[in-house]
Each structure stands twice: as C-alpha cells, then as structure tokens.
Write a protein that binds this DNA or RNA. Sequence first.
DNA 1: GTAGGTTAAAAAATCGATTATCTTGTCTAA
DNA 2: TTAGACAAGATAATCGATTTTTTAACCTAC
Lengths: 231, 231
Amino acid sequence: MNNSLPKPATSAMPAGPAGTASSRVFDHLRKDLVGGSFVAGEKLAINALKERYQVGLSPLREALNKLAAYGLLIQENQRGFRVPKLSREELDDIAHMRLEMEGMALERAIAHGDSKWEAELLAAAHRLKRADITLDKGEEWEHLHTQFHRTLVAPCGSVWLLRFIEQLHDQFDRYRRLGPKMPTIRQELDDQHHQLVELALQRDAKAARALLDDHIHKSYDVALKRYQEHA
Amino acid sequence: MNNSLPKPATSAMPAGPAGTASSRVFDHLRKDLVGGSFVAGEKLAINALKERYQVGLSPLREALNKLAAYGLLIQENQRGFRVPKLSREELDDIAHMRLEMEGMALERAIAHGDSKWEAELLAAAHRLKRADITLDKGEEWEHLHTQFHRTLVAPCGSVWLLRFIEQLHDQFDRYRRLGPKMPTIRQELDDQHHQLVELALQRDAKAARALLDDHIHKSYDVALKRYQEHA
DNA sequence: GTAGGTTAAAAAATCGATTATCTTGTCTAA
DNA sequence: TTAGACAAGATAATCGATTTTTTAACCTAC
C-alpha cells in the first residue's frame, strides 16, 4: 500500500538499507558506548534508550543482549543492564593482551599479505592522514583509525584472532576516548602509522612488531592519563 | 497471589533459581550447540525451538542474539539464525589459537597461582578421573573436563584471556564432539591431565607448556578425525 | 524452455500490553 | 533508634498479536 521505494540510503550506511531496527541500534549503541556517551558503571534506563534511539522495546533489548555478550555491557538477571566500570587493572590487562595478539597478528600478516594488502594499507594510511588534517569531527577520524589498524593485521589468516583484536580495541577505546583530544601526542602516534606501513611493505616483521609494541605502549600512556584524570 | 515458594532448585542449577527464562535458554542452547545437537549449517526454526525449550518468543530471541554475538550462531538480517558451518581451515585456526593462548595463560598461571589454586587443581583432576571411571553419561564428564581446563589457567591474571580461551573451547568442542566417544585415545589424554597437574605443582612452566601443547595437538587429531568422518 | 514477474504462504522482526520482580519509602515493634 | 515488615511505585521480563520481509510456487511473455 505504501509506495515502497528502495530507501534513499544516506552517506556510508552503518547497517545498510536492509538493516533491521535491532542491528541499527546495536551499531549506534556500540559506537556510543565506545565513544564514552555513557558514564562507566551507569545503569541503563531502557525507556530512556527507547526514546533516544527511537526504537521499540524488542529490538532494543536484542541489541542490549548482544552488547552484553560482546562485553560492552554487564547484564544482571532481573536488574537490567549496566555500563561496565573502568579500572586500572583492566586497562593494563587490555593493553597487555593487545600487545600479545596484535603483535602475533602483525607478524603473520607481514608473512602472508599480498600486494592487494599493500595497496589497501597505503590507502588506509593516506585516508587517515587526510582526515587528520581536515579534523572537522573526530568521529570520522576514529572510524578511519580503526579501519587502519584493522587493515594492518587483516591478512593474519586467523578469523578468531581478528575477532578478539577487534573486541580488545573497543574495550581499549573506552579508556582512550575518555577525555578530549590531545593533538600533541597525537602527532607522534600518527607518524608511527606511516612508519608501520613502511616496515610492513619492507616485510620487516621484527622491526614492525617492535614499532607496534611502542605504538601500543604510547597509546596506553594516553589512555592511562585519560583514566587518571577520569571524570 | 501465588504462594511464592523460593523454588525447589533441583541438582546443580545451571542458571540458578533466579535465572530468567532468557538465561536458561541461553545455557541450554549453548550446551546443545557445543554438544552437536544441531547439524552445522542448519537454519534454526524459531517456532520449533520455542516448543523444544518451552519458552516464549522474546526470551528465545534474546538468547539467540547473545549466542550470535558469542560466535555459536550466525545471524543474518531478516533471515534468522543459522548454525555455523564447520571447516578444516577453521578447526586449524581454533587449535592454533588455543595453543597460543592457553600456553600463555598456563605460564602465567604457574607464575601466579597460590596454594588455593593447587588444591583446586588437584580436586578438579580427581573429580575428572572419578567421572571417567563411572562413565555413565558423557555430559557430566564434559562438564568436569571443561572445569579442569578452566581451573588450570584460572590464575593467569587476565580476565580477557580467560574469556577468549573459554570461547575457543566451545568452538573446538563443536568439532571434538562430532562423533561418538573414543576410549582408546581418551586414556592417553586423561593421563596428560594428571601429568599437567604434577608439572604445575612443581612450577615447571616450560615442561608444562610443552605438555599442554602436546595435549592440544592430540585433541586436535581427535577433532580432525571426527570432522573428516563428519556425518 | 527460460527469464522475469506476480502472489500466497512462511518466517522474521517488531509492537503494545501484561506479568513478575525489584526498589523505595513508610510504618511498627522491640 | 533501628531492624524488619509491608505497600506502592518503578523497572525488568515475558507474552500474544501485528507488521514486514523473505521464500517458493506459479504464471506469463519472449
């Protein structure tokens, strides 16, 4: 009865035009949880979320359940959903795991990545640099940054390793994105992105891993500082 | 209006007496998915599941969503849930990741575990051996086996590492539990459990890790055989 | 005979309302 | 004064029905 048009689909569809309400809320909530729109430890008021994301109860609850299984929410029987607390211990844990797993993934990626990977890596680094220059809104930079790190380790050959790394990145970013931008250290980290590309193209696994370790350490320092200045 | 008794709670409550319908179905479905009650690739008929697990649609869908985020189901927009396919490549991936992550966890557990851990480890190994002798139903053995491996790496100090290992075990067991029992090789694997305890108590991290590697390799051989005899 | 289109049936996703549980404030008895 | 009991309100979980989308069967035109 309605003139069912195939939907306009604005720029860069997050869950696609065919996305269900549930998957759209999931994506949106995930972004907001990682980006710090909610305060750690906070109990989520489901009715408020219904309004905020303009969805019904069922798709919302399904999204919340998925996020709980993913580790971005805590679910307690009969008492709803909470945003996980932050702690120094957990930040250390996450950073340590990132060192181990991304290091492993990078070595394997350098061993197996083909020329298509090289091209994509260069492209991802370039887009990231460009976005950094025209730093209108941070959300775009964040997306390209995630994309760069994802591309870097993509050809590691292990679906599960990539899955775990993505999860750790989300968790790590909950700390890193606590406060406002810090352009000072940012420059140094951005330089490392390009150095990483160079070493990857040269297939220097040892040096690349060492640099990635340093990169994660520096990011950790930023995240820790943000956490200690907390809120 | 109802004489609300605190619920009898039969032996070994899976989701506790206060468990929601959703969490109970989740536990039950997880066990069934890992245990091979569904064929890989199968599309789940939600209405059939409603009857099978005696729950309504909402808690069932919430459980399915959680299982999809956990990796035991594939969710496709607008076309429901499927049981993930099995493949040689994925089995290799999972086994390889187990080697890396459980090895890491074991070394750390041996470094940090206290005497309480030693006691629990001995207890877990003993319970496992007992259950093996009186091998009435395999489900009990499976639970104790999981529990043993969980205890072995428990004091590794990383919440996230433990989480990933648990996930990998579930995935691995989808292959290992494809066919019927194989008591022949089982004996050898059971012996290794006790040797692992010994080496752990002696704090011989190197030897323990080597043995665990071998243990996983042997388990892998079993799982691969089951997969190749498939169904 | 086959590609494309139409439609009926099936299944998935969502909604609105109900039920069960927890939380909070108030009261009473020691 | 305070621990415990109770009731009222708020919130979480679940149910039953509706809407939307996919699937499959059939038909038509080339």
